[in-house]
């Protein structure tokens, strides 16, 4: 691993992995405790439309995902809160429609779409500096919003009705949370790709939830876990010549299974 760091692409990949860990560690905690994993999955997949839009307009596809992801986050939030359409139906419709839009945009784009596979399944080894800067900016936005509205987001996740009753603008906060998820999707695209984003949004937070009942500690642990999984996955994919995104996801999945055993074992010991 050390000698691999001589290469600039490896250094960039490692920085990207750390930046992604910050975003998914923090936002993933809300995704898990508020049980909006599938809304997040819907936002992530719908964001594929943004990739297509990026190709169509001839800009960096990741920049296309930013507005598209936020638009789908707001749509899914407003539809599920303001209409009688069941939330899961809204998710399913948006999920497929967003992806279909992406396919149409790409087919309308003359020529052949390079790196498409990378956006779907991650291409951390080819992440350019411009994307690293974008990831850093988005990380800072996420940290700032959570820092300023920590107590409001805690009450929103715990009991939305009570939050409303004490005068917290719960609906607007919920939409803001979905937008943060959209930003996290943008940060994660280069690391694991749109299809696999949901892993890093759930597994690190789900593991840390088993070991603490403090939301702050859970965030801290999740960031550490995602940093460990992405680094480990990166190293394995480098030494075994496997696709990086899928390797990171498999490492996370295996660690989740191990954590379940550790949890059972420790509960048995402490009783």
């Amino acid at each position: 691993m050390i000698e691999a760091l001589q290469y600039e692409f490896m250094r960039n990949a490692l920085i990207a992995a750390m930046l992604a860990s910050v975003a998914c560690g923090i936002v993933g905690v809300y995704v898990v405790v508020k049980r909006i994993v599938f809304i997040s999955g819907g936002i992530a997949h719908a964001a594929f439309g943004g990739i297509g839009l990026g190709y169509f307009l001839g800009i960096n596809p990741v920049l296309g995902v930013l507005p598209f992801g936020i638009a789908s986050a707001l749509t899914i939030g407003l539809v599920s809160k303001r209409t009688k359409l069941p939330e899961d139906a809204a998710i399913g419709i948006l999920w497929a429609t967003g992806m279909a839009l992406g396919v149409i945009f790409i087919s309308l784009t003359p020529g052949y779409a390079p790196d498409l596979f990378g956006y779907l399944f991650g291409s951390i080894l080819t992440v350019p500096l411009s994307d690293i800067i974008l990831m850093l900016v988005l990380d800072l936005v996420i940290i700032l919003v959570i820092f300023l509205l920590y107590k409001e987001f805690l009450s929103l996740s715990f009991d939305e009705e009570f939050a409303t009753v004490v005068g917290v603008p719960a609906q607007r906060l919920y939409l803001l949370l979905l937008c943060l998820i959209a930003l996290t999707v943008v940060v994660l695209i280069r690391v694991v790709g749109i299809i696999l984003v949901i892993t890093l949004l759930t597994i690190p937070a789900a593991i840390s939830k088993q070991f603490t009942h403090s939301l702050k500690k859970m965030m801290f642990l999740s960031v550490l876990f995602s940093a460990a999984f992405t680094t480990c996955g990166l190293w394995l994919s480098y030494s075994l010549d496997l696709p990086s995104g899928a390797t990171i996801v498999l490492v996370s999945g295996i660690c989740f299974l191990i954590s379940l055993f550790i949890r059972r074992f420790s509960v048995a010991v402490f009783r």
Partner: peptide
């Protein structure tokens, strides 16, 4: 959620949000 990561103290403090 019964597993929600919040203590009794956190929950009561939420009443002060208004």
């Amino acid at each position: 959620d019964r597993d929600f990561p919040a203590s009794v103290w956190d929950v009561v403090l939420m009443g002060r949000l208004g």
